[in-house]
Design a protein around this nucleic acid. Structure first.
Length: 202
DNA sequence: CCAAAGATCTACT
DNA sequence: GTAGATCTTTGGG
């Protein structure tokens, strides 16, 4: 499988534009140990979060210890714990100093399904739909935690977590409101691949 | 210091 | 369809 990394400047752009651009790309997670496979998933659902002016964004009221990555360089993983038990993976965008990011909400599993199944604690992968459909499931399937992956650059060849190009004809994109938020809930900043069975229900 | 909310998921009725 | 798990972060007193 050819591995064409995204150029760093791919992420120097507004969150909604980066979000659209990420659809159809592949998220690649290298193994930590010999018994792990490389796990790969096609990005089928994302949400855009701005900084100042976006009441639903973590960065909305300025830089804090938790969200510091968002104010740093673009193309870095921002990982946080939600509801005391699930992680969510975002990728920072905009130039350094400006907080913007894209939340990765769902993947279509492409490779390493046995490892994803084990990480998820499922019996079998007869139903790959449940492997990485939803931000919490996605992180669990890819073995992503805040302690290990927050701040990692996804355009570094050496990184355990990268986004790569793929020969893939992108179908129509659905544009809908973001899921699970209370504020700014009417903004149309959720983007998903139309017709994909791997998009989360929300 | 304390309280409350949170970019969720699973299990069970 | 509804509830419960579980804990960090943040903002107010």
């Amino acid at each position: 499988m050819p591995s064409r990394l995204l150029p760093p400047d791919f992420f120097i752009d507004a969150p909604d534009r980066v979000a659209r651009g990420l659809l159809g790309k592949l998220l690649v997670r290298k193994p930590d140990s010999p018994e792990d496979e490389t796990t790969v998933g096609r990005i089928v659902e994302v949400e855009a979060y701005f900084g100042v002016g976006d009441a639903a964004a973590h960065a909305c009221s300025g830089k804090t210890a938790r969200n510091a990555v968002l104010f740093g360089p673009p193309g870095r993983a921002y990982v946080y714990l939600i509801y005391g038990m699930h992680y969510c993976l975002n990728i920072s965008c905009e130039p350094e100093g400006i907080a913007g990011c894209v939340l990765l909400r769902a993947l279509e599993p492409i490779a390493g399904m046995a490892t994803m199944t084990r990480r998820r604690g499922l019996r079998n992968y007869a139903s790959p739909r449940l492997l990485a459909s939803g931000p919490g499931r996605l992180c669990q399937a890819m073995g992503i935690t805040r302690a290990d992956h927050n701040g990692l650059g996804v355009t570094d060849a050496a990184s355990v977590l990268t986004v790569v190009e793929d020969d893939y004809l992108l179908p129509q994109i659905d544009v809908t409101p973001r899921i699970g938020i209370q504020k700014a809930a009417e903004r149309l900043l959720r983007f998903s691949i139309q017709g994909s069975r791997f998009v989360s229900k929300g």
